[in-house]
């Protein structure tokens, strides 16, 4: 029932949307790794500016990004708070055996910063890339693996179907859960024993519904001539355009500049 849930494609027209999926995936990975190399505030600032610039270019409203942040905020907070207490260095504050050090605070801040950047960078990818482009992109990038006898085409089909059915199954789980709650099942209240009992009432029907869906889907796919052995073609072909080359060059420049910024100061 959720309208725009975490990581979903947001349809609009922007430069970022028009970029080749392979480029976006590769750059996302590179920037994700880079975000963990941030050593100082200048590097972090530089990175943030770049990320916000891309967010603006993506024409996906800020509030969409911020809605999804709420979900990861907890993880980010938890991780950074853990770092607050478990670092060595000059002690700033202490209560009994709990100490907060200067390094602790810095580490904490950086971890939070890095996770936030990681979150933004991957959100840009998923908001601006349609599921099939994303799957095509991954399929294309993984193609070298076919040397190891991995069937890439089947793999990408599995990813497509998984992406497609996540909202459906979530919906079914909600429906079943509501039906059992209506009969007094204590799914989110009551003691542990009751909750586990209640969970059975959701998991078993969900399993059954999933099997039925899988069966129907297999029938539908077979009826539309899907075959694991035959070669499939694609409606949309990934081809590097001028804009992709420009984006690549720009990104390379940013990366180089970042590395200089980051490791020099």
């Amino acid at each position: 029932m959720q309208d725009v849930f975490f990581g979903q494609y947001y349809l609009t027209d922007s430069i970022i949307h028009r970029l080749d999926a392979r480029l976006k995936i590769a750059l996302t990975l590179i920037f994700a790794v880079l975000s963990f190399l941030i050593e100082n505030y200048a590097g972090a600032m530089y990175f943030f500016i770049f990320v916000f610039f891309i967010i603006m270019l993506s024409k996906v409203p800020f509030k969409i990004y911020f809605k999804s942040i709420k979900m990861v905020l907890l993880i980010i907070l938890f991780t950074s708070i853990m770092n607050l207490f478990y670092s060595d260095g000059p002690i700033i504050f202490a209560i009994g055996s709990i100490r907060i050090t200067q390094t602790g605070m810095e580490n904490s801040a950086f971890i939070a910063l890095r996770l936030l950047l990681l979150f933004f960078v991957s959100s840009i990818l998923t908001y601006t890339t349609s599921p099939s482009e994303f799957t095509h992109g991954i399929e294309s990038l993984l193609r070298p693996l076919s040397v190891f006898k991995v069937n890439i085409s089947n793999l990408s089909m599995m990813i497509t179907l998984a992406l497609r059915f996540v909202p459906i199954l979530l919906n079914e789980a909600n429906k079943i859960s509501a039906a059992q709650k209506a009969r007094g099942a204590q799914i989110d209240s009551g003691n542990l024993k009751k909750r586990v009992e209640a969970l059975g009432g959701v998991i078993i029907p969900l399993f059954l519904v999933s099997f039925k869906k899988a069966n129907d889907l297999a029938v539908a796919m077979e009826s539309r001539c899907y075959s694991c052995e035959r070669n499939r073609t694609k409606m949309k072909i990934l081809k590097f355009k001028k804009i992709d080359y420009s984006a690549l060059l720009f990104s390379l420049a940013v990366i180089v500049a970042f590395l200089i910024f980051n490791f020099q100061i």
Binding site: P131, T160, L163, Y226, R232
Partner: peptide
């Protein structure tokens, strides 16, 4: 249970894509 893809036109394309 018959819809394969998350986007309408990509879903309709599924069949012809299978035909090569």
């Amino acid at each position: 249970n018959q819809i394969v893809s998350s986007i309408v036109e990509e879903d309709v394309a599924f069949g012809p894509e299978n035909l090569g």
